[in-house]
Amino acid sequence: MRYLIALIAGSLFGAGLFVSGMTDTTKVQGWLDVFGAWDPTLAFVMGGAILPMMVAWRLTANRAPLAGGQFPEAPGTQIDRKLVMGSVAFGAGWGLAGLCPGPAIASLSYGGAGGLVFLAAMLLGMGAAPRMGRYLDSPAHAA
């Protein structure tokens, strides 16, 4: 059951990337390129994705997940150094290549050698991230 649900969710995610054209890095960079040929498509993708999720979060009240277990706890409100610095780094890389983690994984099926190299570098970065996180958390580094 859990696996079937995960497969359906992943497939919907992949189908959405295909339909929306977010597999094309120029569409992503077009959204970020405010001073160039600006392309608003990404805002519609984000907006379209947020709508069903607003309904879904409401449906989690007084219920349990279909496959058992519990729903995620309420999100924290702490804006710490890791959230800020991590998002700066992510945004910088996202702007450079026009790929974020979802499309980067999906591009395995169509992205050619470039997509493969990006994915490999991304996984390497993810492996190094816990160490970077501890560094940002260390009191010696407190501003």
Binding site: A9, F13, S20, F44, V45, A49, M53, A67, F71
Partner: peptide, 26 residues
């Protein structure tokens, strides 16, 4: 482009909703 973006976005959101309501995960 923006119509396809909106439709694709809704599909992504539905995937996230299935994962949340089904498996209880973000």
């Amino acid at each position: 482009d923006w119509i396809m973006g909106l439709i694709g976005g809704v599909l992504i959101g539905l995937g996230a909703a299935v994962y949340l309501l089904g498996n209880g995960r973000v």
